[in-house]
């Protein structure tokens, strides 16, 4: 009767102690153990599926359909076995992890699955063994670790690589969004600001603003703060500084989009915005900008008449 050992986390510490002595035999996988695993893959897979399904109800995968969960588990376990057969990381593993990343499955599905796999496999091998001494135990643990660990490493690398990639893309996207400059007309440029402004962003805004004024040769630049949720002393200070800097390089700044509550906070905080022009809406600001550049909006007579005659003809009916 084979001795069934319950393998728990405790064994990890035992293993580490033993490994110190056994290092020289470590990396090479034991052929005999390999064949036990490969020949009994069906049993191991069955046990593993039971283990994985246990986790299913109380976590992230519970929202996934039964079919998809089943088929993904099958694919997963195939990938694990193929890496044993081929003795290393396979392209199937890359494909599989890429697929899961795209599906948005959490990394913990994979790491939990692999941990379950480690437990199941070790239990199985030990249950097949005649005698279990520390030498044998360390061999088994070594073999399973050499098999499972590279897969875990590879998956973690894939996942974190993908996260880093996404974060860096988002950072670039955010930076592009954070201080856009729109040249709407010769000599008139608009900078719409949306979202919270911190010191870092304020610096970026000022740099973009000044470079943009030079680049577009803008006589007037409108800063639209309609989309800035809170204007406190700090934000107001940065905006005033930007406007002062714009004046120094020889252009004029109009602050537009001042909502009633922002006007209230500005006055209540005692911030002096009197030094440069402000307007409640972008439209009014734009009109002021046109006046400053000696232009104005002229309504064409022709189109007005067209509409009037159209209205007349409608009335006539």
């Amino acid at each position: 009767m084979a001795k069934i050992l319950h393998v728990s986390d405790k064994h990890v510490t035992i293993y580490i102690k033993i490994r110190g002595k056994m290092q020289h035999g470590g990396k090479r996988m034991d052929k005999h153990l390999n064949s036990i695993v490969i020949n009994n893959s069906d049993t191991i897979v069955k046990d593993w599926l039971v283990e994985v399904s246990k986790n299913r109800h109380n976590d992230y995968t519970s929202a996934i359909s039964e079919d998809l969960f089943e088929s993904t588990n099958r694919e997963f376990v195939n990938v694990i076995f193929s890496s044993l057969e081929k003795q290393g990381i396979t392209s199937e593993l890359d494909d599989f992890s890429e697929k899961l990343i795209n599906l948005g499955w959490p990394l913990s599905y994979l790491t939990d699955g692999l941990q379950a796999f480690r437990r199941v496999t070790i239990n199985f091998i030990l249950s097949q063994s005649e005698k279990v001494d520390s030498d044998h135990l360390s061999k088994v643990l070594d073999m399973v670790d050499n098999w499972v660990d590279p897969i875990i490493n590879q998956l973690v690398n894939e996942y974190s690589g993908s996260w880093e990639h996404i974060v860096s893309l988002q950072r670039v996207a955010l930076q592009e969004l954070s201080a856009p400059l729109i040249p709407v007309m010769e000599n008139i440029t608009i900078m719409p600001l949306i979202g919270t402004i911190d010191t870092e962003r304020a610096k970026l805004i000022m740099e973009n603003l000044l470079e943009g004024v030079i680049k577009h040769n803008a006589d007037v630049v409108l800063i639209d703060i309609t989309g800035v949720p809170v204007v406190d002393t700090m934000v107001a200070h940065h905006i005033i500084q930007a406007a002062e800097a714009v004046r120094l390089i020889g252009s004029t700044c109009i602050l537009v989009g001042i909502r009633p509550e922002i006007a209230q906070t500005i006055v209540n905080l005692g911030i002096d915005l009197g030094k440069f022009p402000t307007k409640s809406s972008l439209r009014k600001g734009f009109q002021a900008a046109l006046e400053m550049t000696n232009r104005k909006i002229v309504h064409e007579k022709g189109s007005d008449e067209g509409i009037e005659s159209l209205l007349d003809s409608l009335n006539g009916e």
């Binding site: 004024v213 800097a245 120094l248």
Partner: peptide, 25 residues
């Protein structure tokens, strides 16, 4: 023709040249 970098530095220094007229070029 005050350069943007120069303008920002002046602002940081707290110098606003209030009574001075400026132009782009």
């Amino acid at each position: 023709g005050i350069q943007p970098a120069v303008a920002m530095t002046l602002i940081d220094l707290g110098i606003h040249l209030k009574d001075v007229q400026t132009a782009l070029d």
